[in-house]
């Protein structure tokens, strides 16, 4: 980064630190913070989509749909997260490769499962073996998002269906009396009103999601916890910047980051709550009405 960093062995004091903290490896550490935040921002809409689908399916009048919706929530909530974090990417990856294999290599005569090995033809690999590293990393992140969305979607589905049930029945009956169809009631009355009931549960989920990001490393995404452990571990002179065990300082930095993230989310969520309570027949909404009156 700086010109005087060319020869790390001769550096001392502030200069050593400034060079040390700007090595390419540290830059990857800093980037991983953005990866984690970005990943959460992508995961939330995906998980909400899963959750909405699950909640609406669980309320459906069509029995098979209802079974799927309820089964999805019950199954994912009942099985340890970590099992799904390992299962979903693996199953998705092998499932996609298997389908590509069937389409692209119809003449293949060897079995796909050879003992422990999962073997598909080279053209069916995802991404292709010759693809650059960034494509492999992006693919890994997409699989991670899918796993997170699948697991958190089930929790969101439960929260949302609870919130839908919490909307006063009288509201829905009134809508019916005005001649609205079921779809119209859901879109115009049920969904706008349920948010205020869903928010506490959803904000809980968001907090859990923030803290679950270290599970990313399990899926091969190099996240902030991986880098903190890797950079903080004691380094012999095989490295350009040898140092003793500094994991404590790196993990302190993570502590500050996570606390900061939690604080910012709390502020944001409480604002959202105030906004959603406006005009609602809840205690918070009633207080707002009295304050302005």
């Amino acid at each position: 980064m700086f010109e005087y960093c060319a020869n790390p062995d001769t550096l001392e004091g502030v200069r050593w630190v400034s060079c040390y903290l700007t090595t390419a490896k540290h830059m990857m550490f800093y980037e991983s913070f953005l990866v984690v935040i970005g990943l959460m921002l992508i995961t939330v809409p995906c998980a909400m989509a899963f959750g909405f689908g699950g909640a609406l399916a669980a309320r459906s009048h069509v029995a098979p749909l209802r079974w799927i919706g309820k089964g999805y929530a019950a199954m994912v909530r009942g099985v340890p997260d970590i099992a799904f974090f390992l299962f979903v990417p693996l199953a998705l990856d092998q499932g996609l490769e298997w389908m590509r294999h069937k389409v692209k290599c119809p003449d293949w005569d060897q079995p796909i499962r050879q003992g422990n090995d999962f073997v598909v033809c080279a053209q069916a690999k995802l991404p292709l073996g010759s693809a650059p590293q960034w494509q492999h990393e992006t693919y890994g992140i997409i699989l991670a998002v899918a796993a997170f969305a699948f697991v958190f979607g089930a929790f969101a589905a439960h929260v949302l269906s609870g919130a839908m049930n919490a909307v006063p029945k009288a509201q829905l009956e009134t809508a019916e009396a005005y001649g609205m169809s079921r779809g119209q009631i859901t879109r115009r009355i049920l969904i706008p009103q349920m948010w205020v009931y869903a928010l506490p549960g959803l904000s809980n989920l968001w907090m859990v999601l923030i803290k679950a990001t270290p599970l990313l490393f399990l899926l091969g995404v190099q996240d902030i916890v991986y880098w903190a452990r890797e950079l903080g571990g004691s380094k012999t002179s095989a490295y350009a910047y040898p140092h003793p065990d500094w994991r404590l300082y790196y993990f302190l930095a993570l502590l500050v980051f996570y606390l900061g993230l939690t604080k910012v989310s709390e502020i944001g969520l409480s604002r959202l709550n105030r906004r959603l309570s406006r005009g609602q027949a809840t205690m918070a909404g009633e207080e707002q009405r009295k304050a302005t009156a």
Binding site: T23, A24, K25, A238
Partner: peptide, 10 residues
Amino acid sequence: PPYNLINDAG
């Protein structure tokens, strides 16, 4: 290290 490591260039 020294078998395999990630150096300071990452």
